[in-house]
């Protein structure tokens, strides 16, 4: 879970000065690395890819914080970068694997990942989630695992709360059916 002990206002104050930038960035990484890691991990599945995507996310934040305009929350802005990094990595991997991430190849990835220690039921659940369309999968993960309020997901994905609720309910029904079918 997040280890957030510093406010975004304080972080931005530190990041706005050349003298305190490094201190601010270190605090920012410390505050958000775990939340972003789990968000990425559920998209890319393996720890190795998640680590790569998370580091790239913070590299982009490091380079691009000068362009942050405060139109959204700092975390929302980073979440978008992290999501793009994770999806981009999945697409690159899909090109090499000649396919997309679905229940079949996610199962293979999970079994090959030394950092998956789940049982068969957990494997089934992750496979079912991986089989969802991309946006539905994001909504499901944000709500199911991160317990993010719909209002925040709405800000993050630019989708209405009503549409998000419908998407989550639809995804939950599909996953349940998928698990019960086996």
């Amino acid at each position: 879970m997040p280890e957030k002990t510093v406010t975004d206002e304080r972080l931005l104050e530190l990041l706005a000065s050349e003298f305190t930038f490094e201190q601010g960035f270190a605090l920012l990484v410390s505050a958000y690395k775990q939340r972003l890691y789990w968000h990425i991990r559920r998209i890319v599945i393996t720890h190795e890819d998640a680590d790569d995507a998370l580091q790239n996310t913070f590299v982009k934040v490091y380079k691009g914080i000068a362009h942050f305009e405060g139109k959204s929350k700092l975390f929302t802005w980073m979440y978008r970068i992290a999501t793009n990094e994770a999806l981009s990595l999945v697409q690159q991997r899909s090109k090499h694997a000649a396919g997309t991430l679905d229940g079949n190849n996610s199962a293979a990835l999970l079994k090959a990942d030394p950092w998956f220690e789940g049982n068969e039921t957990q494997l089934l659940l992750l496979n079912a989630i991986a089989g969802l369309p991309e946006k539905q999968r994001l909504v499901f993960n944000l709500r199911y695992y991160d317990e993010m309020p719909y209002e925040e997901i709405s800000e993050l994905l630019g989708t209405s709360v009503g549409a998000l609720k419908a998407s989550f309910h639809h995804a939950a029904k599909k996953i349940e059916q998928s698990i019960r079918a086996i």
Partner: peptide, 15 residues
Amino acid sequence: RGVRRHALRQIPVAV
């Protein structure tokens, strides 16, 4: 990677 960074140009108005 020799990444160069730049501090925030200004603290966002909302902040």
